[in-house]
């Protein structure tokens, strides 16, 4: 480091420096290994083991019961729907603010609010929606008493697929806005002008230039929003108790030891969650590689 004696030659100095270099990230590597990689590997391996430690596919096989499959199905659909609408609405909002249509002055407040709302997830968010659209929520009550509209009779239930999706959108949309705004800022004014002077309509510009350029960012955010919704436990539990059977709630109950009672089925459930988010991200990486040939 700050040795007073200059090294005798370049060679010993270099030999000394190599392990020292790597030492710098050792704390980080150990921490990540202990508290992220190894716990995850424990789950993955456990999913393929019998209680005595021998290899088996039985745990995974046990997932294929109608109730567990249904739980995965509804989890995936909620995550897809909330990621899709989150991307769509968030993109529309960000585009309207960045590219005109809406005044630039609302940009600052919008970004700040998005920061807050994207972090306002979990238990309090569920309370907010219960107080608004729940059985005695103020909109439910208002529609019932003032307008005579009974949301329940119309088929709306907060503790359902659409109810959960609607609630998740509260943090999904702002997250999309936060991530996609810098990408929209990266669209150069000259591209739009060049396209238009070459005869392209606004729609042609979006289809042939802007959207292809934004595709990697949009796909990435979609994958992130999907994982975000898929792993959301707190919002779901606080909102529905355990009345809606989605995978995170099932796993939560399993870990708590409430139901099922087979620890290795728990491993398999958790492994299934990793597999789903893993597949989502692999698809994303593959799509990104395809759409990003033109990037460095």
């Amino acid at each position: 480091m700050t040795s007073p004696n200059p090294p005798t030659g370049p060679f010993p100095a270099r030999r000394m420096r190599l392990p020292f270099h790597w030492l710098g990230i050792l704390p980080f590597a150990v921490f990540v290994l202990l508290f992220l990689i190894m716990p995850t590997m424990k789950i993955v391996i456990g999913a393929f083991q019998r209680p005595d430690g021998s290899f088996t596919f039985q745990n995974i096989g046990n997932l294929f019961t109608p109730s567990i499959l249904a739980a995965y199905g509804i989890s995936i659909r909620i995550s897809m729907a909330s990621a899709f609408f989150g991307c769509l609405i968030g993109f529309g909002t960000a585009a309207a603010v960045v590219l005109g249509g809406l005044p630039r002055a609302i940009r600052g407040p919008l970004m700040t609010f998005s920061g807050v709302a994207s972090n306002f997830a979990g238990v309090p968010l569920a309370f907010a929606f219960l107080a608004t659209l729940g059985p005695v929520g103020f909109i439910t009550v208002f529609l019932q008493t003032e307008l005579g509209i009974n949301l329940r009779m119309l088929g709306f239930n907060l503790l359902s697929f659409w109810g959960l999706t609607l609630t998740y959108l509260f943090f999904q949309i702002p997250l999309m806005i936060l991530i996609i705004t810098p990408a929209l800022d990266g669209l150069k004014k000259e591209w739009r002008e060049a396209a238009s002077i070459l005869g392209a309509t606004n729609a042609q510009y979006w289809r042939m230039v802007a959207l292809p350029i934004l595709t990697p960012a949009i796909l990435g955010t979609f994958a992130l929003l999907f994982a975000n919704a898929f792993g959301a436990v707190a919002t779901a539990i606080a909102l529905t108790g355990s009345s809606l059977s989605i995978v995170p709630i099932l796993l939560f109950a399993q870990i708590r030891g409430d139901v099922l009672g087979d620890p290795h089925l728990g491993y398999a459930l958790a492994f299934g969650m990793i597999a789903v988010t893993g597949v989502a991200n692999t698809v994303y990486i593959w799509l990104r590689a395809r759409s990003e040939r033109w990037m460095r």
């Binding site: 990230i25 716990p39 590997m41 424990k42 436990v233 870990i255 958790a270």
Partner: peptide, 24 residues
């Protein structure tokens, strides 16, 4: 690579990680 690792917690659900803690 380091960036990739730091993004992993967004992909691996927290409930899975904590399940791993309990078992490990």
């Amino acid at each position: 690579y380091v960036e990739f690792v730091t993004l992993l917690p967004l992909v691996i659900p927290a409930i899975v990680v904590v399940f791993g803690y309990i078992r490990l």
